[in-house]
Design a protein around this nucleic acid. Structure first.
Length: 203
DNA sequence: GCCGGGATCGTCT
DNA sequence: GACGATCCCGGCA
């Protein structure tokens, strides 16, 4: 299955967000290859978006968002959890947070990875708990600061494979999670997820 | 089952 | 010096 190219990431951010649903994230690791179907994402729309990280000028943390589309933006949340984002649109500092995946290949390795980061015993993880949240999927897929700035178009460490676009009636929209402080931007329907999918973090 | 709070630290004010 | 784009555990029902 073909790797998504620059043109895909260079579209309008909400368009990329919708089209990412159903696509396959591929992550080769030392223990084996991991694949997951993207089932939930959020758009962050640049300087005007009060929930977004970008300010007027790039900072050490946010500089990759200002570069060309299709790069990996990772950051540490609450001092504990990594969050995985993909940059879009070559002219705007916008990105998409990947909030949930459905395991496709390598779920036993994902279980190892999750157990390594937590005090929970390996056998207590069921399939659903491996990747149904932004911090969880980063544990399962070994996504951390090492991948900051990786180019999904050229990287051999992480990329996304094409799949047919989903029918629009399977895509649900909602307010984003955890951004109540963002004033009028808190209520905007910038979260997109696959209807009735078991791996979506919250409905 | 549901709810409340603690962990933990990089980033920006 | 304050604050999260979260996760997990414990307490209570």
């Amino acid at each position: 299955m073909a790797k998504l190219g620059r043109r895909f990431y260079n579209q309008d951010t909400n368009q990329v967000a919708r089209q990412l649903l159903g696509k396959i994230l591929v992550r080769p690791t030392a223990a084996g290859i991991l694949k997951g179907r993207i089932v939930e994402v959020e758009s962050y729309l640049g300087k005007k978006d009060r929930a977004a990280h970008v300010q007027d000028e790039p900072t050490e943390r946010t500089k990759v968002i200002f570069k060309k589309a299709g790069r990996v933006y990772v950051y540490l949340c609450y001092g504990v959890h990594w969050q995985f984002n993909i940059t879009t649109t070559k002219d705007k500092p916008e990105c998409i947070l990947i909030r949930a995946l459905e395991p496709v290949t390598g779920s036993e390795i994902m279980k190892d990875n999750r157990a390594q980061h937590s005090s929970i015993e390996r056998e207590r993880f069921n399939l659903k708990e491996l990747t149904n949240g932004p911090g969880k999927l980063c544990q399962a897929f070994q996504i951390n600061e090492d991948l900051y700035g990786e180019d999904l178009v050229n990287s051999d460490q992480i990329w996304i494979n094409h799949q047919p676009d989903l029918p629009v009636d399977q895509i649900k929209t909602a307010a984003r999670v955890g951004v109540n402080y963002a004033g009028s931007w808190a209520d905007k329907k910038l979260r997109f997820y696959i209807q009735d999918n078991d791996f979506v973090s919250t409905v």
